[in-house]
């Protein structure tokens, strides 16, 4: 495994997560929000792939982390599909994709 050392890699993943959180907290456009969430998930997936190279105990293959990554990508795709569907429906209903204007979650 050449390239990144563990601290370097952790810094990369944390930066990605921070970017995502920043996006989630500041963006008001629903689509941008979804993109920010995707970035956060990718930060997590990156962790799986990286640490899969250091099997901690016998019986763990390097493939298990990568398999989880693939499955998570699949989940992320479906999640985005659902998210986009909500955006479309919301847009049709309100004529805007600004999250601050839809307060339906309030009880």
């Amino acid at each position: 495994m050449s390239g990144l050392t563990i601290p370097e890699f952790l810094a990369l993943a944390s930066a990605l997560l921070a970017l995502s959180i920043f996006g989630v907290l500041t963006r008001r456009n629903f689509i941008l929000l979804l993109i920010a969430i995707e970035i956060g998930m990718n930060a997590a997936i990156l962790n799986f792939i990286y640490f899969a190279a250091f099997p901690l105990c016998a019986g763990h293959s390097a493939l298990s982390g990568q398999a989880i990554a693939v499955v998570t990508i699949g989940f992320a795709a479906t999640e985005v599909a659902v998210g986009l569907a909500i955006v479309l429906a919301l847009n049709r209903l309100k004529g805007t994709t600004n999250v601050a204007e839809s307060t339906e979650l309030k009880l």
Partner: peptide, 14 residues
């Protein structure tokens, strides 16, 4: 605190 705005909830989660 319960505004109904998704971003606020996300902030609480964080």
């Amino acid at each position: 605190a319960q505004t109904g705005v998704v971003s606020d909830y996300a902030a609480y989660v964080v």
